[in-house]
Every structure is written in C-alpha cells, then in structure tokens.
C-alpha cells in the first residue's frame, strides 16, 4: 500500500513570530489506516488537521515542510486547485456538532452541496446518495431529517449528519477532529462505532485527533504523541499500550482514567516529565535554528 497522505517536516508559526507552534512534524498514513494524534490541549493536534485541510486561522502560517495529498504537494499548488483537490478527496468530521451545521439551511443541502457544487453531480443523484448515507449512519427517518433544520435535531443526530456529510463524496482521507468530545458518554460510544464502521467499509485513511487514549485503543492502528507541537513518539497502538517508549507518553498513559479504578488513576502528569519534554522541545528548536 502507498501512503495517501505524507507530512514531512511541517512547521508552522504565528504570523511574524519566530516561535513555532508546529515543530517539524512528520508522519504518513496509508489508505485504510487510522492514525491517532494525541496530546494535551494546546499540543497542536487539531492544528495539524487544519494545516492539511487548509483551514489554519489567518494568524498562523506554514513556514516550512511538505504535505503530500494523493501524491500532490499542497503547498506548491495554486490556492483554487488545492481547494478543489481537498474538497474532492478529503473531509472533516468536526468537533462540535452543535456549531458545525449552518442554522439557516436545511440538512439536505448541507450534505449534498459538495457533491453538486464541487463534484458536478445532479441534484437527484446527490439526493439519492444523501438518503443512502443517512441510512448508513443509522438515521431512521432520513427523508424527514433531510427536510429539517439543525435546531430540530439532537447533538447525536447532528453528528451523524456531519459524518454522513463527510463520507458523502467517498473521501480517501477523513480528518476527525475530536468528533466525540462534545457529546455525552452514551452517544460517544455509538458515534465512535459508527465512524469506525464507515472508515472500514470505505477503506478511508483517517487522522483521528483526540486526547482520549481509550478512544485511540479502539479505533486507531498507529498513533503519534504530541507535546508542544512536536511529535515525541510514533508507534503502533499495540506497541504503545504494551509500553510507550517515551517518558512523556508513559506519563500520559498513566494519567488516563481507568474505569476499573477511577479514584487511583486521576493523577496529573509528573512535573519532572513535563519539564523534560519541554526541554526536549527547546533543544529541537535550537537544532532547527542551526540547521535552517
């Protein structure tokens, strides 16, 4: 299998600042593979997804590195071509289903608009596809849902709609940006199962951004641990849960709550470990500056 997405030495910084927020990030994903990006809040996991999809906030710019999507270097493409390539081959499952649907439009166009406007389908074909997808995400009354407005649906339903919308154009890459964080626990499980089901059926490459290692163990084959915008460990999920190589990963794993022993497990990550990780990031920065 060939890597569908390859990110090489990707660095990003706030516009006009030297301090990097992504520090020479490299990873690749094969077709049909799920890569977990884990780390604390602010580690830059969502930022990587945004960089790939070209939706970084305007204050942040990519300062070096390469993103190869389906063999094409995104940074070297014309903006309009890049936009169309991303729209046709990649999709995003957003974090908060309550804010990710346009409140003034019905559900149907929000699922079909990419098919019709970007990929040139007829409205009728797109509608058939949308109904099919809503069935796939186990929505009982797809016709009624398609005619609804977002405020008429529950959070779980909206996330199902967004998943259907993400898979509408048969994307080869899906970036799931903490897709279950905003949902309550029972719904989380269903949504997670659903994402795994669709990913497996469509053999989609997927970047799964989360802070929840429990989720990673259920859905990913490999994972990358981020600290301070730097990948501190790349490993397969099996290896990782056997024993992480990096001290920070070990501390992160140790800090994950376990349902079997909720009291004992709520430990913060050891400060010495964080200091060591921070020092490592700074050392990498020094090296990068001398190298560049």
């Amino acid at each position: 299998m060939t890597a569908f997405l390859t990110v090489t030495n990707l660095s990003a910084a706030l516009h006009g600042y030297e301090q990097r927020v992504l520090r020479s990030v490299s990873f690749s994903i094969d077709t049909g593979e799920v890569l977990g990006l884990v780390g604390e809040s602010g580690a830059g996991k969502s930022m990587i997804g945004k960089a790939i999809l070209g939706i970084l906030p305007s204050a942040i710019e990519i300062i070096e590195g390469e993103i190869l999507l389906d063999g094409q270097d995104l940074e070297k493409m014309k903006p309009a071509d890049r936009r169309r390539l991303i729209g046709a081959t990649a999709a995003l499952i957003p974090q908060d289903p309550l804010t990710a649907l346009n409140p003034s439009r019905r559900i149907e166009p929000q699922i079909t608009n990419r098919l019709v406007d970007i990929l040139g389908w007829t409205k009728a074909d797109a509608r058939v596809r949308a109904l099919e997808l809503l069935n796939e995400v186990h929505i009982d009354n797809p016709e009624r849902v398609m005619a609804s407005y977002p405020h008429e649906l529950s959070g779980g339903m909206r996330q199902r709609v967004l998943i259907a919308s993400a898979f509408a154009a048969n994307p080869k890459l899906v970036i799931a940006d903490e897709p279950t964080t905003a949902l309550d626990v029972t719904v989380q499980k269903q949504i997670l199962r659903l994402i795994r089901e669709l990913q497996a059926r469509h053999a989609t490459a997927m970047v799964f951004v989360t802070h929840d290692l429990g989720v990673v163990s259920k859905i990913c084959q490999r994972l990358s641990v981020l600290y301070g915008g730097k990948i501190v460990e790349n490993s397969s999920v099996a290896e990782f849960f056997d024993g992480p190589k990096h001290a920070y990963s070990r501390a992160l794993l140790a800090a994950t709550p376990k349902y079997t022993d909720p009291e004992a497990s709520l430990l913060p990550v050891d400060e010495a470990v964080i200091e060591a990780a921070a020092a490592e990031v700074l050392a990498a920065d020094r090296e990068w500056r001398h190298g560049g």
Partner: peptide, 22 residues
Amino acid sequence: HLDYVTLSRTKGYSENHVILSE
C-alpha cells in the same frame, strides 16, 4: 470564524462563495 463556515471551506468552496452563501 464559526465552525460551519470553516467546514464549508474544507468542501472546496471559494472564499466568495463561503461569504455569500454560508
């Protein structure tokens, strides 16, 4: 800055389309 606008960008829409119809 809202999520649904960002989401429509990832679908391949141009800035003009995003502003006018989303």
